[in-house]
Amino acid sequence: MKILVCISKAPDTTSKIAFSAGNTQFDENGVQFIVNPYDEWYALVRALELKEANGGNVTIITVGTAGDDSVIRKALAIGADDAVRIDAEPTDAYFTAMQIANYAKENGFDIVLTGKETINYNGSQVGGMIAEAMDLPFVSLAAKLDMNGNTATMEREVTGGVQVVQVNTPFVASCAKGMAEQRIPNMRGIMAARTKPLNVVAPASVDMLTSFVSYDTPDAKSSVKLIDPENMDELVNLLHNEAKVI
């Protein structure tokens, strides 16, 4: 079983979000980068578990620049066999997805996994786009994935509940909470990661359909109005007459 896991770089969840160059660029000053949590905790770990149970190979792929290599090595330390970096700035989801789809088509994978979404741009776009570009079924927001031969049984989130679905390989799925438990890389993994193959591939020529032109940060809240814990009638009164939300 050949599994491709899409990994993206994301700012650590505690990062202060600020912008530079007249609010047109994310300010990376002092920001720590991590593997996007959904990609690492759920997609990658589940792929490794499937490999451990059924044999096969887990390749990770990133569309990014050389600055992403340390994040890629981290994912290798958790246990992926090899890595591919498509050497381009991933500014547009369509551009990113088409690069991954091209690589996946040429190299033949049984399963392509992505995270639910990136925690910086939150598009939840790349997985579905890869599936369409490869004309494959896509199971979005899978919280469980079990394989039996070539058939996958998955549980996925639907509005207000869950759905159990079945699909044959090849397919694309995006992975959400429930799929697996986070793994902490051990020393052996970290050492091994240094020598695992990381293939840098030139990007295909693809149009960009969207671009971020500027950013804003939300207005700071005016200071909190404190209410006496004994006097909840006052809170109700404020919510009704001042905030007008009840």
Binding site: A93, S124, G128, M129, A133
Partner: peptide, 23 residues
């Protein structure tokens, strides 16, 4: 932008080569 759109809109974006604004 619900769970249905998260599965359909990205596919449609590729099919129509139409830029997707999500969220």
């Amino acid at each position: 932008n619900d769970l249905v759109a998260k599965a359909v809109a990205p596919r449609l974006s590729v099919k129509l080569k139409a830029g997707l604004i999500s969220g």
